[in-house]
């Protein structure tokens, strides 16, 4: 089936995959907001949302409806185009990460072998870095276009925080790359799945810790939610936003959480690997479904840890945040890199 020299089968396959992944992530993000409130309720010894539907399961839809129905206010003195562009950019950057995450191995359907990954490019991890560095723009543009001092301050804070923690994140990943010798996420996962292969967390506990802290900071989660520090900045960079534009900013944070959990699962916890199970003995379609379930389970566990931390630890002060980033995380990541390099050389017997 070749028309206009385009492989339409491949195009449709990828479009369906993109739609499933994007709407799936949004659906999970919807219920992550619900889970956040429930986890907070459990940790604070109260029942949490329980009115809409059984166990309050319809609460996210009620919240969404509320956000859409609210009046849309665009401040008079704001930069109109950029004010609208900001939340869109934040959401786009959050969703773009899903392109390189291997959700599972392949399925066989309609006589085609369909890889459950949107794009297996051989620069997968660098792509994630590129997208993470784009994430700053949503915050900065939104904060600046609001034409509000507090928003601008929060945007500058958010941007400098993101830039500072990106460095340590990158350095902690170099150690993983040295072990796997590939930048493709699929290859990294397959190496961890191979017979006798251990998950990368066994080799890189310190690297994982650094990556996890940096992921918290990149997602603007407590204890690093300085851009939203209510007691200093009123409400942070989305102060002037209302209705669904505010909803997009809040939602983008949850999508970011899901994506960074997926990346952590792939890099350090074997991706779609089920421990003590040899997937190659199963039929490919069943193995694929088990793989998706395994990856989603890992993602849910990480999201729970994110929430657990949010409702346990108070917020850092700004100087503490910068000190932690530049004077603790980056040197630790460098030391981790040196140790990994030395261990690889020692094992190779040079």
């Amino acid at each position: 089936m070749t028309l206009l020299a385009i492989d339409w089968g491949l195009l449709i396959e990828k479009l369906v995959l993109i739609a499933v992944v994007v709407f799936g992530s949004l659906g999970i993000a919807l219920y992550t907001t619900f889970a956040e409130r429930k986890v907070a309720a459990v940790l604070q010894d109260r029942p949490g949302p329980n009115r809409a539907g059984p166990f309050g399961l319809l609460q996210p839809f009620a919240d969404g409806l509320k956000l859409i129905m609210k009046e849309e206010i665009i401040p008079n003195t704001s930069n109109r185009v950029l004010f609208i562009l900001g939340p869109g950019l934040a959401m786009t950057a959050a969703l773009m990460t899903c392109a390189v995450i291997p959700w599972s191995s392949h399925v066989e359907m309609f006589g085609r072998k369909i890889e459950l990954q949107i794009a297996d490019i051989n620069i997968g991890i660098l792509y994630i870095f590129g997208v993470v560095s784009m994430g700053v723009y949503g915050i900065m543009i939104g904060g600046w276009a609001s034409n509000n001092k507090f928003s601008l301050m929060a945007a500058l804070r958010g941007a400098s925080q993101a830039i500072s923690y990106e460095l340590a994140m990158g350095l902690s990943l170099i150690a993983v790359l040295m072990l796997s010798g590939s930048l493709s996420l699929k290859t990294i996962v397959e190496e961890q799945m191979a017979q006798g292969g251990l998950w990368n967390i066994a080799y890189q506990p310190l690297g994982f810790l650094i990556f996890f802290v940096c992921a918290l900071a990149e997602c603007n989660r407590t204890p690093f939610d300085l851009p939203e520090a209510e007691n200093e900045l009123n409400f942070g960079y989305h102060q002037e936003y209302s209705s669904m534009k505010l909803g997009f900013y809040l939602f983008a944070e949850y999508v970011n959480m899901i994506m960074s959990s997926a990346v952590m699962a792939c890099l350090f916890f074997g991706g779609y690997d089920v421990p003590f199970l040899d997937e190659s003995t199963l039929a490919p379609n069943i193995a694929a479904i088990i793989g998706v379930a395994a990856l989603l389970t890992k993602i849910v566990i990480f999201i729970f840890v994110f929430m657990w931390i949010r409702w346990t630890i108070p917020r850092f002060r700004y100087d503490q945040l910068m000190n932690l980033g530049w004077k603790t995380m980056i040197p630790l990541a460098l030391v981790n890199m040196l140790i990994t390099g030395a261990a690889i050389l020692w094992k190779a017997g040079v």
């Binding site: 660098l126 590129g130 560095s133 784009m134 700053v136 723009y137 900065m140």
Partner: peptide, 16 residues
């Protein structure tokens, strides 16, 4: 990707 990370992701943020 390095063009994006370095120019669009870092240098342009400083410009902004």
């Amino acid at each position: 990707i390095v063009n994006l990370i370095v120019y669009a992701g870092a240098i342009m943020v400083l410009f902004l």
